[in-house]
Design a binder for these strands. Structure first.
Lengths: 197, 197, 197, 197
DNA sequence: TATGAATGAGCTTTCATTCAT
DNA sequence: CATGAATGAAAGCTCATTCAT
């Protein structure tokens, strides 16, 4: 069937996106060439155009894929039966583990201006907003349940996500601290902004 | 005198750097063209090369300039007679005010790999390390004076600077909150990680 | 097979080199633009970079190609069973015919300083030395066999090659004398420096 | 008087030309920048334009100056009371000494195509022709006086000048042989083409 | 499907030239 | 007279994109 073809193509697309995202995060949009992405997958530049309309499309799909992964992660946390403190702790840990393992954390693909169509741009920003809102939701819930002290939710969320997204700037897979350890510590410190002694 | 000429040239260089830094931070190294930088100063592309050897040199000098400004700021804080809490609060506020006013905060010129010579790279990294160390020093002092609870100094500093540097990603000069307000709030929230109730 | 592709690419490279050499000899390295070379082959500037890394590489490969042709020519002479007088006569004639037909005689690509890597430079100079040595060998052999009078071999060789390489400066394909005639005359005159009456 | 001014200007022009010629011969027309020429004279680029209309003009004047020097040299030889053999020997030696000392021998500024006006081009070619004719004259006179064997005058002259002009390609001021020695040897060998045993 | 080859727009850089001071 | 500063045209080079095979 054609659905078989389609499935095979989707698999390949995924493979390309996963590889491309890593390079794009590392070197930035303009600093990454199609050739470089292709080479890493033992393909040729030209072949990429069978799967993606153009470089912008590739970047766009990267954003979508990464956001999907992130949203999956946080939705699992949201739906869990944990208390707000544990929820936020898990959300933070999940974010860090994704960012350090995939080395392709979404926020780092910052400012998706590039040449996106208005529709594409809105789509990406919408997904980001969703992700942010999940954090807001956890914080809000925590405040309402008196697990957290009252705070400016948006601002605290910006602080938290900023701290998390910066990790990629210095994280070294071969460094002394594991991503696991880092995520534990980050969660602990950041929670101090929200819990009363 | 020739020193007059030299001074005039230095002034112009400063002017270019200031303008260039804004564009470089906004669009990234590869996304910024020499023409764009020049146009913003009502110059021509070619004229830039009278002042800077090449694009890399321009970027390098940007890093130096920005770091100088940042270091000046934090040194003033360090040398003040304030207690650690106020020192850190001021350091945070200073950083945010610089980042939002100049729109050219240093850390955002992330990963100065581009084509820097080893010497240039080391120079920039050294300045960054100095800046970071000032934060460490404030935190360390706070712990020793029992103003702060004991923490992993480096990790807390990474959280703080990460949160601060992220501000540029969303800060909007015409937004509802002034940089002043933001900096107050950030300082208050971040200090919660360090002070006992 | 991939070797078929490779062969096709090699052919194209040859074609480009042959055309480029002519222009380079005519106008010099700095006076020749990539666009000019490309245009003569009905290509675009950009396409050249598919075959050659940069302009220097193109020049380097030109040198290699030309030297190969020259060395092939003189090796045939060296290996022949002729006496020294005839060998030198043939070497001179061969050189002139190549220089005038290809209009891309090697020595004329003088001073291969341009931006060659040390390795490239050594490679080219080595090939030139080989070529010169073949002339020396012929002269030396002639002296030993008493076909030539004793002379400073190197100096006579320099005179001969100098005279030959100068031909390009004035040779005109449509001039009154054919390359054949010129080469005959040159050989005859130059041999007078070496043979006793 | 204005003639004093004019004289001073002429002196300066001479000085510039002498310095420029050396660089032009060394690096070629396109390979030499106005800045380079100016720097060697501790001037600035812009100042050159007070003395010369443009770069082409500078090159043109270089040709004129060099040719004047060469012609002065050979005219002295021509007017001497020596026999043809000695005349040719001296002409050859003079040429070599100029070429190696000034490192700015005229023929080396080969192909004065650059952007010369037709008039300029004709002027330079005329001077070159004059220089060549002096050699022809010496050779012709030698043949008539039976000092030389009959030869194709033009061709022998081309051989001689070719050999001479090539010297710059390899001459090294610090090499084992002095220009004096080289010129003696060259003259001796080249004369063998013309004298009977 | 995949790719070798070609293209052209756009970028960095150089440099002859100009001109106010 | 001399020069600091600016300019713009042209060059080398890169790279996203296309397309015949």
């Amino acid at each position: 069937m054609s659905s078989f073809r389609a499935q095979k193509m989707a698999k390949k697309k995924q493979e390309i996106l996963r590889s491309a995202a890593a390079v794009l995060v590392e070197k930035g949009y303009q600093g990454t060439t199609m050739e470089e992405i292709a080479a890493k997958l033992l393909m040729t530049k030209g072949s990429m155009y069978y799967y993606f309309k153009n470089k912008d499309d590739l970047l766009y799909q990267c954003h979508l894929m990464i956001m999907e992964i992130c949203l999956d992660g946080i939705e699992k946390v949201i739906e869990s039966e944990l208390n707000p403190v544990e929820k936020l702790r898990n959300a933070i840990k999940e974010h860090i583990l994704l960012a350090t393992s995939e080395k392709s954390m979404f926020m780092a693909l910052s400012k998706p201006n590039h040449n996106f169509s208005e529709k594409q741009l809105q789509e990406v920003l919408e997904l980001r907003k969703n992700y942010s809102h999940y954090f807001d939701k956890i914080i809000q819930e925590g405040i309402e349940k008196r697990a957290f002290v009252p705070v400016d939710v948006k601002m605290v969320r910006l602080i938290v996500l900023g701290a998390l997204n910066w990790i990629q700037e210095w994280y070294d897979q071969n460094g002394p601290q594991s991503a696991e350890e880092i995520s534990e510590a980050y969660a602990a410190y950041l929670l101090k902004m929200l819990v009363k002694e």
